[in-house]
Write a protein that binds this DNA or RNA. Structure first.
Length: 611
RNA sequence: GCGAGUGUAGCUCAGCCUGGUAGAGCGUCACCUUGCCAAGGUGAAUGUCGAGGGUUCGAAUCCCUUCACUCGCUCCA
């Protein structure tokens, strides 16, 4: 649980967001709708600036990345190929006793990990039922370990049904799973065998499907034939359009395709303000690279990830590890570049056992939110999993042909080819073993894959591998809001202290760059001059003109909006002191310092700071 | 989806227990006054008390339902 103090901070941020127009609850006048949020005038600008910064860095400032903007609704088979239809429809059950929510398909994997189940397994080795020992356990330790297990709640009745089962003429010994089910069931005849809650042994509700994808139908008539889904991520469109982009963008591997846009997930529990929303926006890059064997054939060797190779410009001998590190580094630089405080975000290298089955490595970029340290972006090395899946499901080849690779392969000596193949087979064998194949089967399958794979390589063909930096825009906005939030307490001459909020956004992403204020509103000359300055700057940056209230109040308002600069037009601007004619005061949000700047120098001074 | 808590003006909250029909501070707006960090004065607007239903002569207050938010279970861009 997060500290109370941190919850207070979060509440302050939420409150400011509403007060100043960063974020509103969606459909608020109708009571709101869970998991959906709107951006107000300042939030919309902030979000645009962040997305623009990403697009500029990832697409415009590079030669090797192309943009894509795909539809939200795509062919439903895309989600079968990606695995989302299967993995996004988890059957869930709730324990009627301890109220915990469990994935029904994981219950039998979880049960043996719990102490109560282990104890029963010990009492009844290999399903050999020892009723007296079970009874003793139920009345003793069992009360602690599995308070809600039928055996513990009502031992005699539960055991009597088990005895019926065991003593039936010609009955085989129950499996361990069956044993657990009997021990979890009080009245077999009325309820059938129950599945115990892994945590407390209690009764689970019938599994209900939790479909995480928003479902709809294309065409006016709803039927099973025209089911479609709102995309749960933007990445798949990139894979689905890989061939088109590759052929038309005049790009050769390594190159990337970037996309940003809305994605939708029917989250079980939207939580933490905008952090987990049901409609959210992603910025994703799929960077396609040659498989290491192709790199080795072309460059002679694959650069080691342990040398700091990734810190420089991309090189021909980079394999997936170096490319992966390179992108982690690039993404960290991006976050620094938009002003995220470096010691409030960190990179986390997932441990091998945490990786999804298709990932070779994954780095999370985590931000220290007031409610806890949470993920902003994941940078995964996904091998050729995605393109291969689409090749399988669509029947369309997803590979590329590389003339140079074919030529280079022809010149490789046999020993090199053999050692590369041996290494490939070792890796694949390990992967098949992990999936549960026996040793002979794993070796056989690995050999078969190696034959297909190396035959293609020799012809210059391969399916590109991919590095995927995938970021959540709304999470980043929330991180930037939390990062920028600061309070300034001032005490006046009367000893009255007052706390004001200053949003310290980096000028590059600040919603408004400059506030423009005539010192006094009732002096037409000041107002006219201020509007002149406004019109001078407006074509180049977002400005906000304000003549309402006292000057200090206007500064404070802009501090809350996070406007980095304030310009005040006073009587000196009009020439009260001739030497100050056509100069204004430039106020810095963070230092509150004011400097005198000539109007003609403003653009040159401000533009570099806000770009 | 389940459990616990919360919902009153733009914001922060009082009033609810012990029904009699809504208040404070801040903010907002207008005017006056203004010489640089939420200054002062005068005036004004704003709530079907989250929504729906019930009990009652009468409901912000008691009861039920529902929606949203917060915290857990779950999830991870």
């Amino acid at each position: 649980m997060s500290e109370p103090k941190e919850n207070v901070l979060m509440e302050k941020i939420v409150s400011l967001c509403k007060r100043r127009g960063f974020v509103f609850q969606s459909s608020e006048i109708y009571g709101g709708i869970n998991g959906f949020w709107d951006y107000g005038q300042l939030g919309a600008e902030l979000k645009r600036n962040v997305k623009d910064a990403w697009w500029r860095t990832i697409v415009h400032h590079r030669d090797d990345v192309a943009g894509l903007e795909a539809t939200i609704i795509m062919h439903p088979k895309i989600w079968e190929a990606s695995g989302h239809v299967a993995t996004f429809a988890d059957p869930m059950s709730t324990c009627k006793h301890c109220k915990k929510l469990v994935r029904f398909d994981q219950v039998w994997e979880m049960i043996p990990e719990n102490a109560w189940a282990q104890a029963i397994a010990e009492i009844c080795p290999d399903g050999l039922v020892e009723s007296p020992a079970l009874l003793a356990w139920a009345k003793g330790k069992g009360k602690h370990l599995a308070p809600n297990l039928a055996l513990v709640r009502n031992p005699e009745v539960t055991l009597s049904f088990l005895a019926e089962r065991v003593n039936a003429p010609g009955a085989a010994r129950p499996t361990v799973k069956e044993l657990y089910q009997y021990l979890a069931t009080e009245q077999v005849n009325t309820t059938g065998l129950q599945t115990p809650c892994p945590h407390c042994g209690g009764e689970l509700t019938a599994p209900r499907p939790f479909n995480l994808m928003f479902k709809s139908h294309y065409g006016p008539v709803e039927s099973d034939d025209n089911v479609c889904y709102l995309r749960p991520e933007t990445a798949q469109a990139i894979f689905a359009q890989f061939k088109n982009v590759h052929e038309t963008a005049r790009q050769k591997v390594p190159f990337g395709v970037a996309q940003m846009g809305k994605a939708f997930r029917n989250e079980v529990t939207p939580r933490n303000f905008t952090f987990r929303s049901r409609e959210f926006e992603q910025m994703e890059l799929e960077f396609f690279i040659k498989p290491d064997e192709a790199v080795e054939a072309l460059a002679g060797s694959v650069a080691k990830a342990s040398d700091n190779a990734w810190q420089g410009e991309p090189q021909a001998d980079w394999g997936w590890e170096v490319w992966h590190k390179y992108w982690v580094e690039q993404r960290i630089r991006f976050y620094e570049g938009i002003g995220l405080t470096r010691d409030r975000f960190e990179e986390y290298w997932q441990k091998p056992e945490e990786l999804a089955h298709y990932a070779r490595a994954c780095v999370d970029i985590l931000y220290k939110f007031p409610f806890g340290t949470q993920e902003l972006e994941g940078i995964a090395a996904r091998g050729d999993f995605d393109l291969s899946q689409h090749e399988k499901h669509s029947g369309k080849p997803m590979g590329v042909f590389d003339e140079e690779l074919r030529a280079a392969w022809g010149k490789l000596d046999e020993a090199k080819k053999a050692s590369m193949r041996a290494k490939f087979v070792t890796g694949k064998t390990a992967a098949f073993l992990k999936k549960g194949a026996d040793e002979a089967e794993a070796a056989k399958q690995a050999e078969a894959e190696a034959t297909v794979y190396f035959d293609k390589l020799a012809k210059g063909q391969y399916i590109p591998h991919v590095i995927e930096p995938s970021a959540g825009v709304d999470r980043l906005i929330l991180a930037l809001l939390a990062d920028a939030y600061s309070e300034l307490t001032t005490t006046d001459e009367k000893g009255k202290s007052e706390t004001r909020v200053v949003m310290r956004f980096h000028p590059r992403i600040a919603p408004v760059k400059v506030g423009i204020f005539p010192l006094l509103k009732n002096k037409p000359e000041l107002v006219a001059k201020a509007k002149e300055v406004r019109d001078l700057l407006r074509p180049h940056m977002t400005v906000f003109y304000d003549d309402g209230g006292a000057i200090g109040r206007r500064y404070a308002r802009q501090d809350e909006a996070g406007t980095p600069f304030g310009l005040t037009i006073d009587f000196d601007t009009l020439g009260e002191k001739p030497e100050l004619l056509d100069t204004v005061t430039l106020r810095d949000r963070d230092t509150q310092q004011q400097t005198r700047v000539a109007i003609k120098d403003l653009l040159g001074l401000l533009l570099p700071k806000v770009r």
